[in-house]
């Protein structure tokens, strides 16, 4: 049986007494590449923040790497790229290297400077995202896509086993998006990192991920075969409403040799 990385049981949460997630159950196994989609306001980001312990649930249990989240300490096993990562203060006087190294906080320890092993990790993370030549650049001198890569490198510097990305392609051009998806594919297949990708781009996500989870109306719908979701009008209607077919009509996606007009 596959090792569970995230296990969510009967999770409920809401704002101002109004539930936005109700009795959610989800299991993500090691090596998974899960796409998390849903309409605006379906609590995708909230769900991720709950699984990371950033916000506390009303009810339910969350287990990370087999441990209850309340006692989980190995946060270095988890890399997280927040939705608004690219909109942080880019006028901040920090180099690419300084930002990536900041995430080694636990490993370096207080009152200690970066050692050679830490510097090697920073370089390795920057090589992975293709920014090694820009390590001395200020973050404010980079393009939107490059800034996003810096944050990916920051998440990767701890060599995480689980990587969560919340809308990573916002503000990134098509070429940059393609590079990002290829990188995630490589991380999942070659580095065996479990990836959870939140996105609005249903067509592209469906083509890239191994499993698909859809959040809508406080519920979660999980599809072990992503194209089961796209190929069924009932599924689309259940998650996005009747107008969805028109909405993504022009997306032609290829997956495993099959072509779909979604």
């Amino acid at each position: 049986m596959s090792v569970s990385v995230i296990e969510v049981q009967n999770l409920s949460f809401g704002y101002n007494a109004k539930p936005i997630l109700n009795n959610i159950n989800l299991r993500v196994n090691a090596g998974d590449f899960l796409g998390l989609i849903g309409p605006n306001g379906s609590a995708k980001t909230t769900f991720i923040k709950l699984t990371l312990g950033i916000i506390k649930p009303w009810r339910g249990q969350i287990r990370l790497f087999g441990q209850d989240i309340t006692v989980f300490k190995r946060w270095d096993k988890i890399g997280y790229l927040a939705q608004r990562a690219a909109s942080v203060n880019i006028g901040f006087p920090a180099t690419v290297e300084e930002i990536v190294a900041a995430n080694l906080y636990r490993q370096i320890g207080r009152l200690r400077a970066l050692k050679k092993t830490h510097q090697t990790k920073v370089q390795s993370a920057l090589e992975t995202v293709g920014l090694i030549n820009k390590r001395k650049c200020l973050i404010g001198n980079l393009s939107g896509g490059e800034v996003q890569k810096v944050f990916i490198a920051r998440a990767l510097v701890n060599e995480p086993e689980l990587f969560l990305l919340d809308e990573p392609t916002v503000g990134v051009d098509l070429k940059g998006q393609e590079g990002l998806y290829e990188l995630l594919d490589r991380l999942n297949k070659q580095w065996h990192i479990t990836v959870i990708l939140i996105s609005h781009d249903v067509g592209v996500v469906t083509a890239r991920v191994k499993r698909l989870a859809c959040l809508n109306d406080t519920q979660i719908f999980v599809f072990d075969q992503p194209f089961d979701f796209l190929s069924s009008p009932d599924n689309l209607a259940k998650v996005y409403g009747q107008g969805m077919q028109t909405l993504i009509h022009c997306h032609q996606v290829n997956c495993k040799g099959r072509s779909f007009n979604a």
Partner: peptide, 11 residues
């Protein structure tokens, strides 16, 4: 100072 949320997650 750079990013509170990421800092919180890093411990």
């Amino acid at each position: 100072t750079f990013e509170e949320e990421a800092a919180r997650l890093a411990g």
